[in-house]
Write a protein that binds this DNA or RNA. Structure first.
Lengths: 145, 145
DNA sequence: TGAGTGTATTAAGACATTTAATACACTTGT
DNA sequence: ACAAGTGTATTAAATGTCTTAATACACTCA
């Protein structure tokens, strides 16, 4: 389900936050479905439970999941993260566009790229790290709660 | 000339690289003009010369400046950085657009933002961190060669 | 009760960033 | 030649973040 990129210089917990939030945003992980436990995910990724705990704490902070002590972590409803996510995404986009214009990229080039992105498949798993699908499944349970 | 943002969690040398490369890209600093010396800029920013040296080394690596030992650092021609800059900028833009689409932003919203950016003034100094406070001014020398 | 869950704490090591204090070779103006 | 200013290199120490390790505690559920 999740594959860590060892070449990525960012902290592990940050990668986990990125990957899981993507899966939640694009709907692969449905609301109220159970996420892997802190310990099981730590084992699957071969990292320390504290590292996963930190990632989950951040995801909860950002509204991507909610926690029930003794039971586990569950995917939150989109209403919890939609607003904050949109703000972040829009800021990132504005920043990238400003840099593009500053560097001399034409509007036509930008429009071409936009069209290209909006035409292609919205591939969540496609990252700089070309991942093999054969990773340890994190599912724990099959689905709903 | 340059103002460091103390709230920015990125390394100082990285901020210096960003600010100076922006000034070079947008033409505020003209090719072959002399940049502040390592020591003077360090004093102006109240940081260690080694930190500035590191930033300058990175800027030279990226083609934004060239060095003449004993004389100083000078702004490079756009031909030196145009290609690499374009690649980085386009990748950033593609990433931001993918995130935007993933989050559910409409093409119309994107087009609206693009139009907005391409209409507004290309303000180099305007960053996400609306800074106006606690920072150290850089001024060093008046700068021609 | 026992297994599984989230949560918290403390200690240690690895690593990056930054500062400090020098030192050396080069260029320029005198 | 000399002094001042330049880039460059080195070593050491301090600081902060990330990660691991080893526990411990409260909760839920079968």
């Amino acid at each position: 389900m999740i594959v860590l990129d060892l070449r990525d210089k960012r902290p592990i917990y940050e990668q986990v936050v990125e990957k899981l939030s993507q899966l939640i945003v694009c709907g692969v992980l449905e609301p109220d479905s159970k996420l892997p436990s802190v310990r099981s995910l730590a084992i699957d990724l071969s990292v320390n439970p504290n590292t996963i705990q930190r990632a989950y704490a951040q995801l909860e902070q950002d509204g991507y999941l909610y926690t029930i002590t003794g039971r586990g972590n569950f995917v939150a409803d989109s209403s919890s993260w939609k607003k904050g996510r949109m703000t972040v995404v829009e800021n990132d986009l504005r920043q990238a566009l400003k840099e593009a214009r500053q560097t001399g990229m034409s509007r036509e080039s930008v429009d071409r790229i936009v069209t290209e992105i909006w035409s292609g498949a919205s591939d969540v798993t496609a990252n700089s790290a070309s991942n093999a699908e054969t990773a340890s499944q994190i599912d724990s349970n099959g689905g709903e709660e």
